[in-house]
Amino acid sequence: MSLLEVRSLRAGYGPVEVLRGIDFHVDEGEVVVILGANGSGKTTTLRALSGMVETSGEVVFDGRSIAGARPEQVAQAGVAHVPQGRGTVTDLTVEENLRLGAYTRRDKEVGTDLERWYEMFPRLAERRQQQAGGMSGGEQQMLAIARAMMARPRLVLLDEPSLGLAPLITQGLFRTLGDMNRDLGTSMLVVEQNATLALAIATRGYVLETGEIVVEGTATELAGNDDVRKAYLGI
């Protein structure tokens, strides 16, 4: 059974339907990427999983239905969501943001994890007492990812992690995501426009067009698909 199983998911804002019934799944340990242009429904897909928009359809996570659950309940079930724009809590310090990431945990190892992520992202360690809102976009994206990992999630949802970042920083970021998946086995669902980088770390992928899934396959298949190459790889 898949870790996340989504069937005929529909979502929208008021009368506007953005997702018109999509099916996909994420298996344990996979990195799954959803490619799509602006307005295709990528962000809405993640927001629908987290209960931030009105939805219908089936969403089963780890054997339990989370369709219609509130965002905090989805988080408590073990899904971490790195939202578009990074969701930095600007008035808190870097360390407070990270501790907030561990809000759902009841164990005593939060401090240990904190040190681990400081080791992984030394920039965050240097700025631990700074107000998080004052950091650069790249640093805030690192913070958002480390904060999501502080929850020890089973699945991480990443909404366009490359948005607004310099190419070199984006490359480093995706390398880190790949490492995290390999070393910790954390499953990831990434929505991206930057297909090259996303497919490089992905196991499988889907292409979303105006609210419907039009292509699906392994990362290698997608990278070799002519339509995908034309539309998203600029080849």
Binding site: Q76, A80, P83, T88, V89, A151
Partner: peptide
């Protein structure tokens, strides 16, 4: 400071 983010992290 940021209710949406807090909710995504599991805060009611």
């Amino acid at each position: 400071s940021n209710a949406d983010s807090a909710r995504l992290l599991g805060v009611s």
